[in-house]
Design a protein around this nucleic acid. Sequence first.
DNA 1: AGAAATTTGTGCGTATGTATG
DNA 2: TCATACATACGCACAAATTTC
Lengths: 244, 244
Amino acid sequence: MTPQTRSPSGYSTWRLIAEELRSEIVDESLAPGTRLPTERELVERFGVHRHTVRQAVATLATEGLVARRQGSGTFVVERPRLVHRIGLRTRWSDSLGHRADASPGVLLEAGPDPCPPADVVMSLDLHERAALRTEMVRSVDGLALVRTTDWFVAAAVPDFARHYRDVGGSTTAALRAIGIDDYLRVSSTITARLATFAESTDMDLPGGAVVLVVRGLDALPDGTPLRYGISRFRADRVELNVDT
Amino acid sequence: MTPQTRSPSGYSTWRLIAEELRSEIVDESLAPGTRLPTERELVERFGVHRHTVRQAVATLATEGLVARRQGSGTFVVERPRLVHRIGLRTRWSDSLGHRADASPGVLLEAGPDPCPPADVVMSLDLHERAALRTEMVRSVDGLALVRTTDWFVAAAVPDFARHYRDVGGSTTAALRAIGIDDYLRVSSTITARLATFAESTDMDLPGGAVVLVVRGLDALPDGTPLRYGISRFRADRVELNVDT
DNA sequence: AGAAATTTGTGCGTATGTATG
DNA sequence: TCATACATACGCACAAATTTC
């Protein structure tokens, strides 16, 4: 485990240990409220110096994942986790709209996209039609939980950005103002990866954060494609749910 | 980006750059078959020494994610990606069974679990009944893609391990041999995190690999809970799909 | 209440790894 | 290849808070 004996992985020992412990916490193998193994036990388990274990736990403490109490131990902090349901009607308002502490979505950008990715062109049939792209961040309790990029068929959602701001940051309400009362989720594709630098900046993520990426296609009840969206969720604070 | 100006993250600079590029490849921002930016461009973009970007790209090349061609450039390698469908009937046989190169599941362990996690006890109503736990790895083309842990109500699946081996590594077939012809997915919960040391060993994952974690509850058509499963997928090779 | 054991917090010194130039 | 600056990991010692007996 020492840098001398390990092959160069690009990960420091304390970071590896920190991520191992984080996995167990996110997984609830270490349940909220319970005590972490003592530093002595962690030293034993990982075969490293106490300072190394301490630096690992220190980063988790800085992130607010655990709380250390001198003489007593280190404890897993209880943290609310957002459950985002994926189904026929997938709406932010259902997942975080009812929470008193949910802020409206912040529109970072909205404008024409001259050259959307190939799968977006395909899904929305944008060969002959212009695309509108929106970039948003959504937060709960001051914590950014999701970063979204959406494409619309521009002609179908006139003045989207203005309506979005007018209704106070709700996509569903903005679409209703335009005259679109209902839309359905056709399919969702879920992947996961490490956050990019840009995402870490936009969502203020800790180092090495994992994001859940959901690509979804929404259509009008008659089947006309309406929106192609890419949502990137903080994986340590959000879980996706599919009921069948 | 220099070690002097960065706050200590536990990641070496080349590792950060490697993971950034990997995210773009997994995301298909850098599509299969396309050329990576030149070393010169990467040096420019990340503001680091040429040795540093070379080490980053070298790691991706070792993993087979990119191929370097002298005088030509570095290219993103095309790699098959497994799509695992989540729906009412979620079966391995549907996702990877029809592939000629799919190996049967390898049963690592099967036996009584005296003390399953709280949510498993709850979902399967194991307060008074014994639990059977199975641990498996499933591979395609010699590449381990998923590591599963399943709990059954022991009394409902007598001799499961024997049947599983007899039918050659298929859960659905083993259950049929026991007399269970059909079962349905009740709900699925999806999270993501870095792989643990144990998972990295079992699935032979590269350092810092991300896993998609799916917790699912299966029940008999009459609603009796049958199985609670935790599946951990290699996130760089598997995507989940939900059609609604 | 008090002593001992346990657990986290802190300091210094040394050797090695990392990234730049 | 070498020099420089910083980060990492280890070894040892002791302090402070809490729990245990």
